[in-house]
Nucleic acid binder design. Structure first.
Lengths: 133, 133
DNA sequence: CTTCATGCAAATAATTTGCAGTAAG
DNA sequence: CTTACTGCAAATTATTTGCATGAAG
């Protein structure tokens, strides 16, 4: 996980055992909430304290290494910061798929019609994935 | 607020003083979080207990009279259930404007490309409103 | 009247903080 | 070595529940 060591160093955060495990688990999961993340971490790292997890989540958020995503009806989720994308959330298996779709023309129209300077959009589409139909 | 009395009755919920005040305040605010809603309610209704507020929020959610909306960086918000719409969130004044925009063609393409049966979408666009540019 | 809703206090869950010891660089 | 990170316990904050009383229909 050299990738993360560099990222951490770039933000003056030490590459601890715990942090690397947190990042690896978030990355593996794609999207994960605190409780589930904690249980995964305990498997390999039985002494990890929840305070450390919370502190790290906050530090990593502050450094923009991870970001919060809010999905309807689910607990707050975290993911490794990536390019903006749309989330497809399956209401059955709760799997989340990231997709890209260019909405520039939509945004420019919305922006003009509402005199609103758009910075970022958050889109979640809920439904049934191909495995659950 | 006869509108709400009917709605409540339709869901076998009694039209109490407290419930009507809760609905009125959510409606007036457009979007509101628990803490701010509670403080508004106390102004006119100093004996209201927080337990009652939480219980009512849950009952009203269960009856689909109100719904939760998750906005980035903000506490869980509640609004009176209305037609699906897009939220424009101003990052400066935190005002939220509801707009409508037809995205059917986008949805049908996303649906086809990803074999995903779309049920509902949640869209928040963050930026600066005309008052805050 | 009868049932459901409310207020209060206590219980539980979620998150943050203080501090002494430990690991990273 | 020095500074930042961790674990633990305690403190806060958020939310839910039990129960006796009160209001709605």
């Amino acid at each position: 996980m050299d990738k993360y060591q560099g990222l951490l160093k770039a933000h003056n955060l030490k590459s601890t055992h715990q942090r690397l495990a947190i990042l690896k688990n978030i990355s593996d999961a794609g999207h994960i909430d605190v409780e589930f993340l904690y249980s995964k971490l305990l498997e390999k790292f039985s002494s990890l304290s929840k305070a450390t997890l919370y502190r790290n989540i906050n530090d990593l958020l502050a450094s923009n290494i991870i970001e919060e995503i809010k999905l309807p009806e689910l607990k707050q989720q975290y993911e490794i910061k990536k390019e903006p994308h749309i989330h497809l959330l399956c209401k059955n298996c709760h799997n989340v798929k990231d997709i890209n779709y260019n909405l520039d023309s939509v945004y420019s129209e919305i922006s003009k019609d509402n005199k609103f300077k758009i910075e970022k959009s958050f889109i979640v589409i809920k439904g049934l994935c191909s495995n659950c139909v």
